[in-house]
């Protein structure tokens, strides 16, 4: 089961990443990026890193991508296109064929069931919120503080760069 899911998520992540780069429409690109991030969140879940998966969805797929889409849609609005207009017989056939081929590939890949090593028991403990908080404020306190300076510098820099007019 885990192998099926892993291969599904991994394929999806790579395909979405490719589609994002190759797509002409910026909005579609952004949506593919969301798909890519969601599939990576799925891989995190398989690795039993719940916290990371939730943060991935909340922060990346949620907050950051919404901002992305907002900016794209504000700057670059295209004419509305109804999805239904595009759909014809060939699309339906190709989608069905695609699903069949994909599930067949997954079935074959799944027969190599032991391809993935199991996640170690103590690794599963590491992924919890408590464990991460503990580490962050003891062992990793210095990098945490440096991140604060890094963000300050980035904000100052971004404001300087973005200012349209100055004397």
């Amino acid at each position: 089961m885990v192998t099926y899911l892993f291969i599904l998520f991994a394929t999806l992540a790579i395909a979405a990443a490719l589609a994002m780069v190759l797509n002409r429409s910026t909005v579609n690109s952004a949506l593919f990026l969301v798909l890519n991030m969601l599939s990576i969140a799925g891989i995190y879940l398989l690795l039993k890193a719940q916290f990371l998966a939730v943060v991935q969805v909340l922060v990346y797929a949620g907050a950051i991508m919404v901002l992305f889409l907002f900016v794209i849609m504000l700057l670059n609005v295209e004419d509305e296109e109804a999805v239904l207009d595009k759909i014809n017989f060939r699309y339906i056939i190709s989608v069905i064929l695609g699903v069949v081929v994909l599930s067949y590939l997954l079935y074959i890949a799944g027969s190599m069931a032991d391809a993935l090593p199991p996640v170690a028991e103590d690794m599963a403990q590491v992924g919890t919120v408590e464990a991460i908080g503990d580490e962050l404020f003891s062992t990793y306190i210095l990098p945490l503080e440096i991140t604060a300076i890094l963000l300050t510098a980035a904000v100052v820099g971004a404001i300087m760069m973005a200012q349209h007019k100055f004397k």
Partner: peptide, 22 residues
């Protein structure tokens, strides 16, 4: 520590990107 190495590296870089275009 590789994490701190990367953070320090990035802090230096981000500041210098902006300064280069000052």
């Amino acid at each position: 520590n590789v994490l701190l190495m990367y953070l320090a590296f990035e802090l230096t870089s981000i500041c210098s990107y902006v300064l280069a275009g000052f």
